[in-house]
Amino acid sequence: MFYEPQNGHGLPHSPFNALIAPRPIAWISTRNAEGQRNLAPYSFFNAVSYFPPQVMFASTSAKPDQDNTKDSVANIRATGEFAINLVAYEMRDVMNVTSQGFDKDVDEFDRAGITAAPCETIACDRVAEAPATLECRLVQITRLPGESNYVTFGEVTGIHIRDDVLVDGLVDVAKFQILSRLGYRDYARVTETFTLARPDD
């Protein structure tokens, strides 16, 4: 089939997200200007550069108690800081609890029973059990066409890696079965990896 997004697809659900998959999940922890904690998952997330290490995530909807965005972006605007916690398969259910659209004064760490730990380079908490956490300082927030579409870029200023995630000095994503988002309400986990050498190696 072929379709132009502006004219619709005629399917029960949009296939777009299902085609751009799998997407790693950024479980983003922030604080607002008053110190209120927030924790929410985003699946439009990736790394964008090595030196300095930088990442991005996109927020594509709004809450009625925020100014045309969600709590994470609003908090990052106010403080310039955020942490991205990676999600292991074993954490899927508690992560899903934090995807609910709670009021901005709700602490998702407490609501989902998640253990928090302090970050080292920023004034946010992180998910203590996460296989890895990237501490980030805001580089810029870019408004995209469409309602409530924002991309947030951050420079990674500190990285936490759980000791059991490292095998012979390498990160083993299959060991902790990193969780990824597919389309619809579907997810995937990495259970095996393989290596391809580049022709110019």
Rank of each mutant, 00 (worst) to 15 (best):
G113W: 00
N38H: 05
S29W: 05
S99T: 06
N75R: 05
V106R: 10
A112Y: 00
P41H: 04
T98M: 01
C119N: 05
T60D: 14
P52K: 01
R37E: 13
Y42Q: 10
R37Y: 09
T60A: 14
M91A: 14
T79D: 15
I28P: 10
M91T: 12
R37S: 13
T115H: 09
P53D: 09
D125I: 02
T60F: 12
S61I: 03
C119E: 12
A128V: 11
V55M: 05
G113M: 01
F102Q: 11
I76N: 13
L86N: 04
R37G: 11
A128Y: 07
I28D: 04
S61H: 04
A88R: 08
Y50C: 02
D105M: 12
D65G: 02
A33S: 15
N38F: 06
N32W: 12
A132W: 05
K104M: 11
T60Q: 13
N38K: 07
K70Y: 10
D110F: 00
Q100M: 15
V87M: 07
E108C: 02
R92V: 08
Y42W: 05
L39I: 03
E90S: 15
T121A: 14
A47T: 08
T30A: 14
D65F: 01
A83R: 05
G113I: 00
D105I: 05
E81K: 08
E90G: 15
F57N: 06
A40H: 07
N85M: 00
N46M: 08
P41F: 01
A40Y: 10
V127T: 10
V94W: 14
T69K: 06
K104Y: 12
A130W: 00
L86H: 02
S29D: 03
F51W: 07
A88I: 00
R31V: 13
F45T: 04
Q36I: 07
V106A: 05
F51Y: 09
A116M: 11
C124A: 10
P118V: 12
A58S: 07
Y42S: 12
N75C: 04
A88Y: 03
E108L: 01
N46A: 08
G80L: 10
V106S: 09
A123D: 12
T60Y: 13
T121C: 15
S49V: 00
A58M: 06
L39S: 04
A117R: 11
V106K: 11
M91D: 15
D103K: 13
K63P: 07
N85T: 00
R92F: 08
P64I: 01
K63S: 04
S99W: 04
M56A: 14
E108H: 01
Y50S: 03
M95A: 03
